[in-house]
Amino acid sequence: MHILAWALQILFVPLLAPLGVGIINKIKAKVQRRQGAGLLQPYRDIRKLLHKDEVISEDASFIFNIAPYIVFGITLIVGASVPLFTSVIHLPSSDLITVVLLLATGTFFLALAGMDTGSSFGGFGSSREMTLSALVEGLFIASILVLVILHRTTNLYLIAGSVHLDYADLIAVALAGVSFFIVLLAETNRFPFDNVDTHLELTMIHEAMLLEYSGKKLALMEWASANKLIIFAAMLVNLYFPVGLASNLQFGTIALAITIFIAKLLVVYVAIAVLESVIAKLRFFRLPGLLFTAFILCLIAIGLVK
C-alpha cells in the first residue's frame, strides 16, 4: 500500500493535469454558448505534439533544447512534493521555501528559452514573465507565511495535516487564501494576468516564450504548465482548507481522500473558469496594483494571527 501511495503521489499531477485544463476549457465554452472540445482534448493535443517532427531555430543554443526537460522535470518534483490526497508521506523537498525556489528554477529556464531564439516575441514574453514572477514571489511567500506562523512549521505536509482549527484564525486564513488565489492566477498565467488562449503579440506572456517550440518540446512545455495549475490548485485547497486528507495509508481512506481531493480541485477549476468568463484581462501595468492589494491582505492576515 505504501508503494502504491507513493506511485499515486508522484503520478497524480502529470496524469490528471491535462484533464484540469480540459475542464476549464469546457466550462468556458459552455458559458460562451459553444459546444467546446471534449474533456480529453488536452491529452489528444499532447499525444499529437509528441508524435510530430520538430523545427528548431538556427539561433537556438542548448538552453532552448534542455529547458523543456528542466521545466517539466521541476513540475514533477514539485508535484510529488506538495500534499495531494494524504498528509502522511512526504519528500525532503516538501518545504515552503524549497518549493518556491524550485518553481523559480523552472521560470528561470522558461524565460531563458524565450530569449534564446532572438525573436522579439520571446524576448518580450520573458521580460513580462520575469516582471510578474519577481513581484509574485514575495506575495507567494507572504501568503503562506500566515499558515507558517499559525502552525509553526514550513513543512507543507505538517501544515496540511494539522487538525488545529481555531475559529479566531479563520478570517486570517481566508484572507491569506484569497491572496494565494491571486498568486495562483499569476503563476499559472490565468486571467487577469495573462490569456493562455491568445497569440496576440501585444498581450501574451507565457505563450510568447513558447512560440518557437514545436513537437515533443512544445508538448512538454504545455504539459508542464498544466502541471503547474494543478500544483497551485492543490496547494490552495490543501493548505488553506485542509479537510479530508488521508491520515493513514489504508486503501479505503485513500480512495475516499482522492475523491474529496478531486472534488475540491473541481471547485477551484470551476472558479477559475467562471472568473475567466466574466472578467477581462487587466492592462499589464495595472497588475502590480492587484498584487499590492493582495499583499496588503496578507499583511492584515499576519497582523490578525498571534
Partner: peptide, 12 residues
C-alpha cells in the same frame, strides 16, 4: 516517437 525528424530553420 523515436524516429522524430528535427529540422533547423530561421526564427520566425
Amino acid at each position: 516517437n523515436r524516429h522524430q525528424k528535427i529540422t533547423s530553420s530561421p526564427t520566425w
